[in-house]
């Protein structure tokens, strides 16, 4: 399945889950499987922010908590851990401080760090180590601490 088709299908599934109490939907077609899981406290949809400059943020009031999407600002390979010594490897649910390194995009042998634009909790990690990423791709969703 092409990335774009998968993305479309995920959106479709997420939209079907909206306003229901469904926690999980699995979609299977041929050799492709998509599993969409509702995150705890993730009752409202995240506002889509305009990806732009470095780690553009798109905070919008949604209930009590603000969600901020972190986008890739370059094209390359996503790395969980940023050499030489800085640990990143963040997981869903983990608390992060503003400016903390979340990971990096390796582009032409150069590591470009991805920094948390706000302090909060990683609501969703949308990328795996060694995945290729394009400009504007959503990498993380952070639930900002109030």
């Amino acid at each position: 399945m092409r990335f774009k088709d998968a993305e479309k299908k995920i959106k479709e599934l997420a939209s079907a889950m909206k306003d229901t109490d469904i926690q999980e939907i699995e979609y299977a077609s041929g050799s492709n499987n998509i599993l969409v899981v509702r995150m705890p406290d993730n009752k409202e949809e995240t506002a889509a922010a305009e990806p732009g400059k470095e780690q553009a943020r798109g905070p919008e009031e949604s209930g009590e908590k603000k969600k901020v999407t972190v986008y890739s600002h370059s094209v390359g390979i996503y790395r969980d851990v940023v050499p030489p010594s800085r640990k990143a490897s963040v997981r869903s649910g983990q608390k992060v401080d503003k400016g903390e390194v979340l990971g990096a995009v390796e582009s032409m042998k150069i590591m470009k760090e991805i920094l948390a634009p706000v302090s909060g909790r990683i609501a969703v990690k949308l990328i795996k180590n060694n995945d290729s990423v394009q400009y504007g791709q959503e990498l993380f969703e952070i639930e900002e601490s109030v």
Binding site: P51, V75, G76, S107, M108, Q134, G136, Q137
Partner: peptide, 27 residues
């Protein structure tokens, strides 16, 4: 395949040499 390399102004996308080369490398 298609890869987004930048924002709408050509200077940030179709003229963005670093992102274009990276796109060639990852693909």
């Amino acid at each position: 395949e298609s890869i987004c390399v930048g924002a709408d102004p050509a200077s940030e996308s179709y003229l963005n040499m670093a992102n274009i080369i990276s796109a060639a490398e990852i693909s």
